[in-house]
Simulated scan of single mutants.
Amino acid sequence: RNPNLKQGFIDRFLLMTEPYDIPTAVVFNKADLYDEGDRAVFEYLQGIYEPLGYRVLLVSALKREGLEDFRHLLQDQTSLIAGQSGVGKSTLINAIQPQLQLKTSELSDYTGKGQHTTTFAEMFDLDFGGRIIDTPGIKTLTFNNLEPQDVAHNFREFFALAEHCRFGGKCLHRNEPQCAVKTALEEGIVSELRYFNYLAILDEIEQHNYWERNVM
């Protein structure tokens, strides 16, 4: 909330970490601003990602809610915190490590979007063990050098089901016959949100690759 979560942002980000087996948690900040509808959205997303093995946390840096679980995630690890501009990444780090006094800023009154307070990645030691890397806010996530099969293989629940598809690991889970992912979607086992985000990324990569190989 403020800024609004961009459609598909979580799945696009996970597509960057999944190929490298990087443990990833999804952290929702600014819980103090949530109304009933926002909490319903959080619970909906939590119900999608936690069964897939991703930790999902709801925190408030301002009210210091949920910070103990967040600290536990970071303890004795080297962690990178990333997200859209304005979601409160630096504020969240300040909440668990106040002596850092990282610079923060409010959302733009004109656009309602975050402003780049952090302009380069910087790593800090945590006094309870571990290190954290603060990063500039992400405006957009695009993919280069990816093939459609890379996308199919890195949506983890799709990859697990692919062995039951007629075409196995070659299935892109769109119009292929006897597709286990499509069957799971119809049965409510696979999330519609995840599936539609997958299709959007797949289309984007195919269009990008077409223009790169045939026009440029």
Rank of each mutant, 00 (worst) to 15 (best):
A152F: 14
R194L: 12
E163T: 12
I93P: 00
L199S: 03
L74D: 03
T17A: 08
E50P: 01
G86H: 11
S90F: 00
N175S: 14
N214W: 10
L172F: 09
D35V: 10
L52C: 01
V181L: 06
E206T: 08
H116S: 15
A61F: 06
L33E: 15
R55A: 11
Q149W: 13
P177R: 02
R156G: 06
L126N: 04
L193R: 05
E36F: 15
H173M: 02
E206I: 09
S79G: 06
Q75V: 14
L199Y: 03
V26R: 07
C165Y: 07
D203K: 04
L202E: 05
G47H: 05
T118Q: 01
I205R: 00
L74P: 01
A160I: 15
F143G: 00
P23V: 11
D38L: 07
D150T: 00
E43Q: 07
L62N: 10
T104G: 12
Y20K: 08
D38M: 08
C165R: 04
S105I: 05
E204L: 00
N4H: 13
R39L: 10
T117Q: 09
P98A: 00
G37W: 06
G53K: 05
D11Q: 06
P98E: 00
F196D: 10
E163C: 11
G47K: 07
L57K: 01
E204T: 00
G8T: 13
I205Q: 00
H164P: 07
L146M: 03
A121P: 14
R64L: 09
G86S: 09
A160C: 14
R213C: 11
C179N: 08
E36V: 13
H208R: 10
G47M: 14
I138D: 04
F70H: 01
P177A: 06
D134L: 07
G112M: 12
E176Q: 09
N4C: 06
I22H: 01
E212M: 11
E186D: 15
R131Q: 13
S60F: 02
N144Y: 08
K170T: 14
D35H: 12
V87R: 02
G66C: 14
L62R: 11
P148S: 03
I10S: 07
C165M: 09
K139E: 11
A200I: 12
D38F: 08
T104Y: 14
L73G: 01
P177N: 03
D76T: 10
L102N: 04
L57F: 03
P3V: 05
